[in-house]
Computed example of a mutant assay.
Amino acid sequence: MPVSIRDVAQRAGVSVGTVSNVLNRPDEVSSESIDRVNLAIEELGYVRNDAARKLRGGVSTTVGFVVLDGQNPFYTDVVRGAEDEASRHSIAVLYGNTDEDPARERLYLDLFEEQQVRGVLIAPYGDITARLQKLRARGIAAVLVDRFSGDGRFSSVSVDSVLGGRMAVDHLIETGRSRIAFVGGPFDMRQVTDRLAGARVAAENAGAHVEVEVIATGAMTVGEGAAAGARILARPRHERPDALFAANDLLALGLLQSLVVGGRMLVPHEIAIIGFDDIPFAAAAAVPLSSMRQPSRMIGRTALRILLEEAADPESIARQTVFQPELIVRASTAPR
């Protein structure tokens, strides 16, 4: 059993109140009592539970962060940005990866609620408005990350994915491509549907000579991208797209690996590829990958800042912060 403050008081021969004063208000205690209590603490190995003490005072020193895919460097950078901001406020970030699994998402939210964290940042899988309202009713603030709050009930920090999708396909069209495939999924993820919507807008604006087909994936991973690449290679050459817009960089890297290494297709001469996020691996790929850059660390810092403000003032009005994506052009989309 862990050593308690009562154990310390018994060993030192003083009251529990005296031990508490030594720990919190030593100026109110005699030097003799301080020495006796400190000796008892050393002998028993007592460790002060600051987290529990602050919870009793109504202020937690932790926030929770639930992300969609902990293996995606984009989310790693977003969490790092939140941690950088949290350290300025002496706050710790507890991190959970759902791996795009709604059951794991519920598990982490339940855990953070039980821990009475000060607030929760979440990149959600589906619609979790009702669950976040429950957290708010318990006095736990919540901010959406990498997801725009359509109904405005909760603050959110995101990137304009519709604009990003349009910019990506506009770029592919400008390089001379017209048979474009969007690779992504699942489609109950808002980021995926928004990026596809932007791609379709770009194609419609370009006219009937530009087509956008959809190659669905079960997840946003390198493995799923490689599998999609294999399906493309199985087609006759005249039925293959001449450009691919992947919903994120992990998919794009899987496509690149499958097409170039496995299928010996020339990128960008036979097929161009562009991703989304601009993770560090994009620039280091065998064929440097073009991508739509998101300001990942800024997203994390901004979300944490808003979360702490709302935790301090529960009556504050929800705000929607939307960053603009940036087109990063590399060799994978060079003109024909």
Rank of each mutant, 00 (worst) to 15 (best):
R6F: 12
D7V: 11
V8F: 01
R11V: 15
V14Q: 09
V19G: 03
V19E: 03
N24R: 15
R25C: 13
D27A: 11
V29L: 09
V29G: 01
N38I: 11
G45L: 12
Y46L: 06
R48Q: 12
R48C: 06
D50Q: 13
L55V: 08
T61Q: 07
L68K: 01
L68G: 11
P73K: 06
F74A: 04
V78N: 01
V79Q: 06
G81W: 06
E85R: 03
H89R: 11
I91S: 01
D101I: 04
R104I: 01
R104S: 13
D110E: 15
E114A: 15
Q115T: 06
Q116G: 06
R118F: 07
G119E: 12
V120C: 08
G126E: 14
D127A: 05
L135K: 02
R136N: 09
R138Q: 14
G139V: 12
D146P: 09
D151T: 06
M167F: 02
D170I: 04
H171F: 05
I173A: 02
E174N: 12
A181E: 11
F182C: 13
Q191G: 13
T193L: 00
R195L: 11
R200I: 10
A203L: 07
H209F: 09
T217F: 03
G225Q: 00
A227Q: 09
A228E: 10
I232L: 14
A234L: 08
R235S: 06
H238R: 13
D242R: 13
A243L: 04
A243V: 10
D249H: 05
L255W: 10
L256Y: 00
L259I: 13
V261L: 11
L266Q: 15
L266F: 08
P268Q: 09
I271N: 07
I273E: 04
I274H: 02
G275C: 08
F276R: 00
D278H: 00
A285K: 04
A285V: 04
S291C: 03
R293F: 13
Q294N: 13
I299G: 04
L304C: 03
R305T: 13
L308Q: 12
T321L: 07
V322A: 08
P325G: 14
E326P: 00
L327I: 12
L327R: 10
I328S: 10
V329G: 04
A331P: 05
S332R: 08
A334M: 10
R336G: 07
